[in-house]
């Protein structure tokens, strides 16, 4: 399995401004927001959830997951919290903040529009 299949390499978290990666990074953010919209989860659970719901098509590299979580937290869209898992283990759970819920709505709309646009281009 290739290691760096992820859309965001660690370096790009620092460098920032290349447009094609921005779009891709946005996708990961959107997926995370979507997963957290269904309830608080820890990092590993987020990857599992995305893998399951995408029927294994989307695989999240941890190298991009945690920077993405940090980024979202910094933006105030999600909040990290230490909680106990069902097996009574300490884990860091992430919750959607009210700001995050609003952002999720906006991101969803813009993603739909983006997909429709691509679709329109491909089908005509």
């Amino acid at each position: 399995m290739p290691k760096n299949t992820s859309p965001t390499s660690p370096q790009s978290a620092e460098a920032g401004a290349q447009p094609p990666q921005e779009v891709l990074r946005g996708t990961l953010d959107l997926l995370i927001l979507r997963v957290l919209d269904t309830g608080p989860r820890h990092g590993w659970a987020i990857t599992q959830r995305i893998q399951q719901t995408s029927k294994g098509v989307l695989e999240i590299n941890q190298g991009s997951l945690y920077p993405a979580l940090q980024r979202l937290e910094r933006r105030g869209w999600i909040r990290g919290e230490w909680r106990r898992t069902e097996q009574n283990r300490r884990a860091r759970f992430y919750l959607l903040t009210p700001d995050g819920e609003r952002a999720f709505g906006d991101e969803q709309i813009s993603w739909r529009r983006y997909v429709q646009a691509i679709e329109a281009v491909l089908t005509t």
Binding site: M1, K3, N4, P10, Q11, A13, E14, N61, Q62, G63, Y66, P67, Q70, R71, R74
Partner: peptide, 16 residues
Amino acid sequence: AAFGSMVSHREALRDG
């Protein structure tokens, strides 16, 4: 192996 280099992940996080 799936997780990748712990060090580079931590570096990335540190930059954030």
